[in-house]
């Protein structure tokens, strides 16, 4: 069945692996740039999140009375519980980082242009789901930090144009931050959003398999997807795993104090790092901006920016160089704002 001279293995013959990878052998991708591996790295981090999240589910209790104590038990009592929680928390940060990196890479390579609009859109949906996972996950320990984050995050959502009020109540699971908020966040974090992410990821990958691409010219030196690209991807995965276990072993993700609605929020309260830039703008803006209520203006502007990002393949059909420069400037501004927020 195999062409002469093909080297296959015992396992490959019996599992049908050879048949599975044959289309990948024919397909070639560019060999340049580390950023080509970010998509695969994001996938791996998602899988680590799923695995460590399932493990946390064994001991976590989604209840305002018990949640904090159950996480405390995972951290302090269950063997390797602290390690597994650290893995979950660190991978989530790396997940967001690698997703952002992947997005930037696509923009800089102008890979959003036709005929890849659907890939771009599905990627944006994945980003939105990823942010939703991070938000809901941060609520679950029901620590003071989680409580404040749930309150502020859902309050900001109120200013989203048109959908604001609905989103505000939806995120809180009611009018106030209560046990319903926690229960809601839990359901979305462990079931709804991971399922949605898997679905859209499948769509994202199926779109990668577009037939026409096989014949599309590849810039620069190229390598076959299988085995070359996959092996390099596996090496990159190994590096990511090392990063995750190193961070998880040596840097604890502290739980903080339990949620207490009567506690005044300390002045060093900060959102997760990927929202620091927004925190900095909100914290340093005045009550009214251009005659509009401050948060309303800022959230509205952020939504407009988001809409521009979503519509990028349609706004920039030709792939102007200026788009890439604009993206770099934007990233630079966000980094500067975030660094300012930390000081």
């Amino acid at each position: 069945m195999e062409a002469g001279g093909r080297r296959t293995g015992w396992l490959a013959d019996r599992s049908g692996w050879s048949d599975l990878v044959r289309p990948l052998e024919a397909r070639r991708v560019s060999a340049t740039g580390f950023d080509r591996y970010l998509g695969g790295i994001t996938l791996l981090l998602f899988l680590i999140e799923v695995a460590s999240g399932i493990l946390l589910l064994l001991y976590y209790k989604p209840d305002t009375v018990q949640a904090y104590a159950s996480v405390g038990r995972i951290v302090g009592e269950i063997p390797y519980g602290n390690l597994i929680r650290n893995v979950h928390a660190w991978s989530s940060d790396l997940f967001v980082a690698s997703l952002g990196g992947h997005l930037l890479s696509v923009v800089l390579r102008r890979a959003y242009r036709a005929p890849y609009e659907l890939r771009w859109l599905s990627g944006i949906v994945l980003l939105a789901i990823g942010i939703g996972l991070a938000f809901t996950g941060a609520v679950l320990p029901w620590s003071q930090k989680a409580y404040v984050q749930a309150r502020v995050g859902s309050e900001l959502a109120r200013y989203v144009p048109v959908l604001g009020d609905w989103l505000h109540r939806f995120l809180r699971g009611g009018d106030e931050v209560t046990s319903a908020t926690l229960q809601h966040a839990f359901g979305f974090h462990v079931a709804v959003l991971p399922a949605a992410l898997s679905l859209f990821f499948a769509v994202h990958v199926v779109l990668l398999m577009r037939k026409r691409e096989e014949t599309a010219p590849v810039e620069g030196a190229s390598i076959p997807v299988y085995p070359d690209f996959i092996i390099r991807q596996a090496a990159a995965w190994t590096g990511v795993v090392v990063a995750v276990i190193t961070l998880a072993t040596f840097s604890d993700r502290l739980l903080g104090s339990p949620a207490d609605p009567r506690m005044a929020t300390p002045s060093d309260a900060r959102p997760p790092w990927y929202f620091l830039w927004f925190h900095q703008i909100v914290a340093s803006s005045s009550r009214d901006l251009l005659g509009v209520n401050g948060p309303k203006f800022l959230v509205g502007t952020a939504c407009l920016l988001g809409a521009l990002v979503v519509g990028l393949p349609f706004l920039d059909r030709r792939g102007w160089k200026v788009t890439a420069y604009l993206a770099l400037v934007l990233v630079f501004v966000l980094v500067v704002l975030s660094v300012n927020a930390l000081s």
């Binding site: 070359d228 596996a234 190994t238 795993v241």
Partner: peptide
């Protein structure tokens, strides 16, 4: 082990 894996994968590539 991860280092071993990484080296073999790199060599293979």
């Amino acid at each position: 082990l991860a280092f071993l894996l990484f080296s073999t994968l790199s060599l293979k590539a």
